[in-house]
Computed example of a mutant assay.
Amino acid sequence: RPEGTVVYTQLLERNGGIAADVTITRLSPDHFRLVTGAGYVNSDLGWLRLQTRDGEPYVRLWESTEELSVIGMWGPRSRDVLAKVTGDDVSDEGFPYMTARSIHVAGFSVFAQRVTYVGELGWELYVDPARAGQVWDRLMEAGASFGVMPGGYRVLDSLRMEKGYRYYGTDMGLLDNPYEAGLGFCVQRDKWSFLSPEVQRRLRTLTVGDEQYVPMYGGEAVLSEGRVVGRLRSCAYGFTVRRNLAYSYLPSDMKPGAQVEVEVFGRMIPATVTHDAVLTKRAQLAS
């Protein structure tokens, strides 16, 4: 793949279990940056080091967490905000999705990746920590007229679940393979030919109850005809679709449209199995 390409994928154990959920950017012909969750840096670096073999070409692995600050800017007007503080081309044609390159923001050099964890247009901006505060201030100033505001992790949870995005450690792990986690599109079939797309269980999205908030925290039982068929993983309220959302591994024959119940503090709440992404791009454009 050419320099500046960003790939979303998983690191797999030899049996297909998911060891990590990452993005990998090709910075140069022999230099790559792997981005993982903050809580998994040490374990993922250790896992990668275990994959090196005697007699193979030398590969240097190191952690760069402290070398960079990262600002995530996402939303339908993020391109308008970025265009106000850079002379670089950030159009869809000039800066395609899942690509990365250096740009200048208010005169500061920034490495920008057009990726998203919330399903909206946007960028991750990697910048020298000594300059990060100034870049942040320029972006906030430029975005004031567009209503830009800081968002915390629970905001990310709400948005990413509306788009069906997974969170490693909660929604998938070593005991799950990509097909079970709904990530079969990441699998290189010829390399992992022994992994069958036909699975007995599948991570599904549920809409629970109605528009009123339901306090779910993960681990709640999912029942079908009075029998426990799964337990909740990630949970969040989707403020765009106005629904309580949850993920659960369910028998593979329970496809979108299936009706189940979720036990929440002793109450049985009706729930519906739906498609992975309850908010589609078409729905976003119409809203």
Rank of each mutant, 00 (worst) to 15 (best):
116 T>N: 07
174 L>Q: 05
74 W>E: 10
18 I>P: 00
141 E>R: 14
262 V>F: 03
129 P>Q: 06
232 L>C: 08
34 L>V: 15
123 W>R: 02
198 E>Y: 07
49 R>Y: 02
229 V>A: 04
88 D>G: 08
145 S>Q: 13
151 G>Q: 11
33 R>S: 11
22 V>R: 04
152 G>N: 14
272 T>V: 13
163 K>W: 01
79 R>D: 12
197 P>A: 04
24 I>N: 00
89 D>S: 08
48 L>A: 04
175 L>T: 13
93 E>D: 15
110 V>C: 09
287 S>Y: 10
169 G>H: 05
285 L>V: 07
25 T>S: 11
279 L>F: 06
207 T>K: 11
230 G>E: 01
4 G>E: 02
242 R>W: 05
206 L>T: 01
31 H>I: 07
87 G>D: 15
60 R>K: 12
125 L>N: 00
201 R>E: 10
108 F>P: 00
90 V>D: 00
191 K>S: 03
233 R>N: 08
62 W>F: 14
174 L>G: 08
270 P>R: 09
264 V>W: 02
166 R>V: 12
127 V>A: 02
57 P>M: 09
110 V>M: 09
124 E>Q: 11
231 R>V: 11
70 V>T: 13
277 A>N: 08
187 V>I: 13
128 D>R: 04
20 A>R: 00
185 F>V: 07
275 H>W: 06
266 G>P: 09
131 R>C: 10
64 S>H: 05
199 V>W: 00
287 S>G: 12
1 R>M: 14
70 V>R: 10
211 E>F: 11
147 G>M: 07
231 R>L: 03
124 E>D: 15
82 L>W: 01
3 E>D: 14
259 Q>A: 14
272 T>I: 09
147 G>S: 07
98 M>C: 08
61 L>S: 07
205 T>E: 01
269 I>L: 06
78 S>T: 12
223 L>M: 13
173 G>R: 01
141 E>D: 13
234 S>C: 08
268 M>K: 15
100 A>Y: 02
2 P>G: 12
217 Y>V: 14
189 R>I: 03
190 D>L: 10
270 P>N: 06
51 Q>R: 14
